[in-house]
């Protein structure tokens, strides 16, 4: 019974992880890729690691707090990492996709330079 629950968690996890990787390959520019890589991969990994935790807790009767700590850590760091990576990409002049319509950030940089 519990193995079915863990299997379902694992399947959801690999679905989201694969989704993140496919998005990383398919999407047209780096910013859209960061969307896929942070959101989907984070949720997928959370599911997978939680399935591991449940397996050891219920099947093997071993409470491993470190795994829960890893989930917390992934959730805390994923948005920070995404923000720093996208900012460095934008500041070093990686262009947006050619169908992007709006770029307020670039305008603010231009204004700062003009001052």
């Amino acid at each position: 019974m519990i193995e079915i629950l863990i299997s379902i968690l694992i399947i959801i996890g690999i679905f989201f992880s694969l989704l993140g990787s496919i998005g990383l390959v398919r999407l047209p520019d780096i910013y859209a890729r960061i969307h896929a890589a942070t959101k989907s991969a984070t949720l997928g990994i959370a599911f997978l690691v939680f399935a591991t935790f449940l397996h050891f807790w219920i099947v093997e009767a071993e409470f491993i707090g470190k795994i829960l700590l890893a989930i917390l850590f992934v959730f805390l760091t994923a948005p920070v990492g995404a923000q720093i990576m996208s900012r460095s990409a934008h500041r070093t002049g990686v262009p947006l996709w050619n169908k992007s319509t709006h770029d307020d950030l670039k305008e603010s940089y231009d204004k700062k330079k003009a001052e």
């Binding site: 992880s17 990787s21 984070t42 990994i45 997978l48 992934v74 460095s88 990686v94």
Partner: peptide
């Protein structure tokens, strides 16, 4: 280069899940 950085980050995240499955 930022593309590669993002991909390496996603690689590390996927490694976490991979090792978790390996533990099971």
């Amino acid at each position: 280069v930022p593309d590669r950085i993002v991909a390496l980050d996603a690689f590390g995240l996927n490694m976490v899940g991979f090792v978790g499955l390996l533990m099971i």
